[in-house]
Amino acid sequence: MRNAYIDALYELAGRDCRVLALVADNGAIVYDKFRAAYPGRFINFGIAEANMIGVAAGLASCGKVPFAYTIASFLTMRAFEQIRNDVCMQRMNVKIVGIGAGFVYSNLGATHHATIDMSIMRALPGMTVFSPSGPIEARKITKEAARIDGPVYIRLSVGGSPEIYEAGYEFETGKGVILRDGGDAAIFTTGSITTEVLKAHGELKNMGINARVVNIHTIKPIDKDLIIDSVSKTRAVITVEEHSIIGGLGSAVAEVIAENGIAARFKRIGLNGVFAGGYGTYDDMKERNGLSANAIVRETIDCINKN
């Protein structure tokens, strides 16, 4: 996902001289091509996220299109007030790009996990929030971010995320994608955990349970129509996010359901008021934190059987 982003940024920079790559001492080798081609448009701020965002807003006020990139947890929280005041309040055209969504930096621990970033970015007025599920989507979202005139947050997993789309996939901001269809349950997912959801879908299918799987790549604005449509066609609604269940995808879906007066069996899968626990590999982390395919299967069945 990271490489897809940087490749897309490189292409954008070739077409539009206003596009700048800002980093806070993160992204050593992956930016080599960009730095070589556009040395004056790659700015390393050192370990100073707040300043990076403040400066990015100043650059944007002069017509530049800065893409400010670093580890999502530092970027969204250390620089939160700069994102709120300098970028959103002043409606500056700054792209905030966080790497390391969820707990993909597994054994680096909770300081490096981004598990409330969607909640806090979604709360900001004027902010568009993207959460791509794989490289092709990350690439399309990067291009789309450049087209949007205003603040955008992109939540990226790391390099090496598996692909879930064919090359011809057509992306549209704010439009969720039905990855699999079925009437027994509707599972909403976002980001790289989507691969687990697809595995879970397969296992459920083997058990005779057909679930609809919807990828919500745009957390804000959210696809209300598709949520309403999916929820009204099923008995059970499940949301899956590698993130806190407070304020992220699950909350966003719940808001749509509640505000439209739809009764549904509903389960949010994600971190329930806790930091992600344990170390080990990314897969270990999914297992320990209830986000493995098996856990998703279990929760889905529970939700379907709930009275």
Partner: peptide, 25 residues
């Protein structure tokens, strides 16, 4: 008015970005 200030410590980074854009252009 060039900047919506109020929270302290924001004006210098913002102004620094403008100065940088001036140099670039």
């Amino acid at each position: 008015v060039e900047a919506s200030t109020g929270a302290l410590g924001h004006g210098l980074p913002f102004g620094t970005g403008i100065a940088m854009a001036g140099k670039m252009d």
